[in-house]
């Protein structure tokens, strides 16, 4: 594995520092559509700093697992981020790393579901149950999407998949379909409208937010931080479908990265402003519909390959 220090450091730096900023862009977009001024762009950073300076309240029911879970979630999301190319090559890449990427995110889900069940609250149990169910369905579409990508690009590493060496993908039907599918997976995995509403005030209808009801202080900060990082990863992955990374690392690729992810954040903001949340019972159907779109992308790929 060839290794150069500067892109590696910049990759880590971008991954660790910038994600909360894009939550700010989404909030601004939503505020714009609602005719409000909205919070400052850096609001999430202020929130994080505030949370890290606080003490903590733990439930009497909780076991040590409650304290370990946020750390596991942050660590796995961060390591998953090291596998994804965002500006040039990914720091770690090897044959089959796309499976590790998906399973690292699954480990984060495993941890947060257990943390929710740890405190013995019925609300959090409800959220955990929903997260587990919808997670299984979105994993279905996500893996099929990965297969389609692997078949189309004939590669088994995220690095090679998102740096098309021979064909430029933009506006190929397969990639448009996959973009659509991955966008919906992004909304599901990061609990955005229409799957889940990050700003809802009714615990009965929440998924992600209700699972972290019993977190406070630095632990809550870690969870918020990891959620923003996960959203960042999915936005980078989805936008790379239409606008792939350059083969070699250049300074300009940092600029293009921010541009495309900011664009994605605005798109999410628009979708959130224009839609209402789905009824919970409809969500599996929505996810299966998404799966069907991916199947369609697979068929397109296979027919293209045959001719």
């Amino acid at each position: 594995m060839e290794f150069s220090a500067l892109p590696f450091i910049i990759h880590i730096f971008i991954l660790a520092i910038t994600p909360p900023f894009f939550l700010g862009i989404i909030a601004k977009t939503k505020a714009f559509f609602a005719g409000r001024k909205g919070p400052p762009l850096l609001q999430v950073y202020y929130d994080l700093i505030k949370l890290f300076r606080k003490g903590a309240v733990y439930s009497k029911t909780a076991s040590p697992l409650l304290k370990v879970a946020p750390v596991i979630i942050v660590a796995t999301t961060f390591v998953a981020g090291l596998l994804l190319p965002i500006t040039g090559k990914a720091p770690f890449h090897f044959e089959g790393d796309l499976i590790l990427f998906a399973y690292l995110l699954a480990l984060a889900r495993f941890a947060i579901i257990l943390a929710a069940l740890d405190v013995g609250s019925s609300f959090e149990g409800m959220g955990a149950s929903r997260e587990a169910t919808f997670g299984a369905f979105s994993e279905l579409a996500f893996f099929l999407g990965l297969v389609v990508l692997a078949v189309t690009t004939n590669a088994l590493s995220l690095n090679a998949i998102f740096q098309w060496e021979s064909v430029h993908p933009t506006l190929k039907p397969v990639f448009l379909l996959l973009f659509f599918s991955f966008f919906l997976i992004l909304l599901t995995e990061n609990s955005r409208i229409p799957i889940d509403d990050p700003n809802t005030h009714l615990e009965l209808t929440m998924i992600h937010e209700v699972m972290v009801l019993d977190y406070s202080g630095p632990d809550l900060g870690l969870i918020l931080y990891s959620a923003s990082m996960k959203l960042f990863l999915f936005m980078a992955l989805t936008t790379s479908l239409l606008w792939p990374q350059p083969m070699e690392w250049e300074w300009i690729s940092i600029g293009t990265l921010f541009l495309k992810i900011a664009g994605m954040a605005v798109a999410i903001g628009i979708v959130e402003s224009a839609n209402a949340r789905l009824r919970l019972i409809k969500i599996p159907q929505f996810l299966i519909a998404n799966f069907v779109v991916t199947v369609f992308a697979l068929l397109v790929t296979v027919f293209n390959k045959g001719t």
Partner: peptide, 28 residues
């Protein structure tokens, strides 16, 4: 392809299943 999707779905459901077992038996 069906194999990949099958194992992936089984994996997702296994997570649901074992968080259920561990969460209900050992936590709370």
């Amino acid at each position: 392809v069906a194999g990949v999707v099958g194992i992936a779905f089984a994996g997702g459901l296994a997570i649901a299943c074992f968080t259920k077992v561990f969460g209900v038996v050992f936590l709370g």
